[in-house]
Design a protein around this nucleic acid. Structure first.
Lengths: 254, 254
DNA sequence: ACGTCACTTCGGCCGGCATCGAAGTGTCCC
DNA sequence: GGGACACTTCGATGCCGGCCGAAGTGACGT
């Protein structure tokens, strides 16, 4: 945490004399102000790379339309692309971009989408139960984990969300290497307002590490190529053992 | 922190059965995707109420245009209005709205605005030095305060920004009533990426309380009706005494 | 080599929306 | 009461941008 204040040599990313060029809020917001582009970004919030055609089908637009939108999103710095063969893979530019979009989405009004079928209803129920949120766990399960960690005083909220000392050692006990604080720019503990639960769940580097561990240990498995997560038997046992989670959220059946 | 997960009676704010209605990101972003509306919101980030005419003049549009935009922003929940006599005062709906806009602005590209005059250059320099950011202090001074509090270990960053015990007692020593944690929903320590410094400054309830104290104690005064803040002699002495701030940021001349 | 597939470019169409001026309503002050 | 002022409504204008289909390019597989 260097406390140098009289900024030394400025990185010439913009103008050499960088007094307050006002942020171009409108151009950034315009990128998200289209139904199709917004749908792309929300889909990409699962943290993985999608191809242009997949996104086009998901949003119900022609491939040429998707191309145009992806150009804009990449040019605007929200997405990065990777060309492999005849495929163009796009993903969110980084965790900070994901957090920005999440932050916006948390304040957005809900669109009342009518339930179309029984499958649709099931899909929604499962999505509300457990899903990925970029690089961490969301849904009722994510919120429950967060609140159980709070109950055991692994997380403290008094002065902003923070991991306690016992929380850090709990993580170490799980074999989760706690990234050394200060190493990365990213806040270690961050919260993210859950869409479905309307309560915060754990995010940031700690949330990502915990989720990575849960996937590595097969506590959770992805359902197909969606962002829906299914709790495995091992996962249920582990969460019951390591955290006293209420049984209601520990159902393992899709 | 109630850990009730199987949502009991739902508040009927949307549909009775509230599985995951996806957020309407596009409609929210569209509110900010217009140059004029974005300018309104950025101006309102100073936390005070403006009249429609003031905003119209600031943005360089006709009054009728401003009316239309303000309607949309109020209908969208970003702004609240208060009619007093023949004036219509609007302000940001709340701290969470301000935080959302700040978060977006921090990721927005800078618009290279050419310096038009000597007055303009001075205004920018002063704005970069100290200004309000909704309800707390921003600019080089805000960042310096934050970093000095970090150096004295009033703030800890290891597991997310947090106020330490000594930080809490330091605030009490200043006569700042530390809002009892848990009382309000708002995180007590939050950071906000500074536009000009590109480093975080203190925000959240603690940042707001500190700023309020600085204004009450006349450490800082507003310049006219702008968001520019000027450090007073008392303010310089106080900051030198309570925090070892580097002299460079302690200039009091506008 | 050929067909298939993923993606791109281009042109044209169309809807939505920001803008303004003019005219109207209510408020304040003299 | 009259005039100035803050704000609103309405209609007209014009532009920007999303959308598609058709045609083109390059990669992959048989």
């Amino acid at each position: 945490m260097p406390a140098e204040v009289t900024s030394g040599e400025n990185d010439p990313v913009t103008s050499p004399d960088s007094y307050a060029d006002s942020p171009d809020l409108a151009s950034l917001a315009a990128l998200l102000a289209d139904r199709t582009r917004a749908a792309f970004c929300l889909a990409l919030l699962d943290g993985r790379a999608w191809t242009a055609t997949e996104l086009a089908r998901m949003a119900g637009v022609a491939p040429s339309t998707a191309t145009s939108h992806l150009h804009q999103l990449v040019a605007g710095g929200l997405l990065v692309q990777e060309r492999r063969g005849r495929h163009r893979y796009v993903r969110l530019a980084g965790p900070d971009t994901a957090e920005m979009i999440e932050g916006l989405a948390a304040h957005a009004p809900r669109r009342p989408a009518p339930v179309r079928s029984l499958t649709d209803a099931r899909r929604r129920r499962d999505l509300a139960h457990a899903r990925t949120c970029y690089d961490h766990l969301a849904g009722a399960l994510g919120v429950a984990v967060t609140e159980a960690m709070t109950a055991r005083e692994f997380l403290a909220w008094d002065y902003g969300p923070a991991l306690t000392a016992s929380g850090a050692s709990w993580l170490r006990g799980l074999g989760i290497a706690d990234d050394r604080p200060g190493t990365s720019r990213r806040p270690h503990v961050r919260t993210c307002l859950d869409w479905t639960e309307r309560r915060p769940h754990l995010a940031g580097a700690v949330g990502a590490a915990l989720f990575r561990h849960a996937m590595d240990a097969s506590w959770l498995v992805r359902r197909g190529s969606t962002r829906i997560l299914t709790l495995t038997d091992e996962g249920r046992d582990a969460l019951r053992r390591h955290l006293p989670l209420p049984d209601e959220v520990l159902r393992t059946t899709g």
